[in-house]
Amino acid sequence: MSRPATRRAWPVLGALVVAALLVVVAAPTYYVNLAVLALVYSLLAMSLNLLMGYAGLTSFGHAAFFGAAAYAAGILSLRYGVPFWPAAAAGIAVGTLLGAAYGILVAGSRGVYFLLITLALGQVTWGLTLRWVSMTGGDNGLPGITRPDLWLGWPLADVRGYYLFALLIAGICVALLALVVASPFGHALRGIRESPSRMRTLGYPVWGYAYAAFVVSAFFASVAGVLYVYYNGFVSHQNMQIAVSAQVALMVIIGGAGSFWGPAAGATLLVFMQNLLSSVTQRWMSVLGLLYIVVVLYQPSGLAGLVTQIRRRRAGRPEERVATPAVLPTAGDRNGWGR
């Protein structure tokens, strides 16, 4: 509905694409590596944003799908010598199917119950992978996954080549997500975020929408997982932990839940911060812990909220209440939808 906003977005989008392509040519290899990670986590954060920002369903178990897809592709490639494309497809299928299974268990919940159940499912999936040593390598993870030997005008084994490949895949996924968000289905998700009871009496099968959103979100998280495992060449239980699920949620919050590009900005910021800071301090985990606390205390509406605030101040409008509830749903949602 925000057509003027879309029109304004075109030059920005063009500049982004140019900048993204410039990275390949101009940036030192270290930063190209970071850029790949930024792409992977941007896609993961945007997939979570579909649930958190649009449907108002705060999942704390998103790493399960990311990790399951990464493990599945990694195991197939490493243990069974499956080539890139079928292994990648199978990885995405496994992550999405896991989403389809867990979706049945969570689609009827809402608010803090949804959070708790997704958290528990994610954690148990993590524990399962950690102990299934013969398949997953347990604590040691799975090292030695090699990048695909493909040639798309550039060898993928080279990080710059892989970056271009990741950019292409992430670009396609983001375009698909943009379509979903603008579609009647995407609008219905926002309606569910605002008032599930009204949606139900208007005639929307709310359970089905929540379920579909969950599966779609798991699908894109799986794509990110496969992109990750082939980039990193290594997957371990660390990629499935609550720390990842929470960090992706933090990326969404830092960027601004419900804003389309915000989570990608949050993801990029966090990836760069993590890698640049870890090179100067051993205590990255503490920094991250403090960051969680600081974000909640000082800027709960994220970068997108910050942008809105600045715009309003520029426009000379008085201090208006920024829509913080947009980002931080309340326990008031707990009157679940249907049981």
Binding site: A243, L288, P300, L328, A331
Partner: peptide
């Protein structure tokens, strides 16, 4: 709920 769970996550890491 989200503010609270993020705070507790911060404490978990710290």
């Amino acid at each position: 709920i989200l503010a609270q769970v993020l705070l507790t996550m911060g404490f978990l890491l710290l």
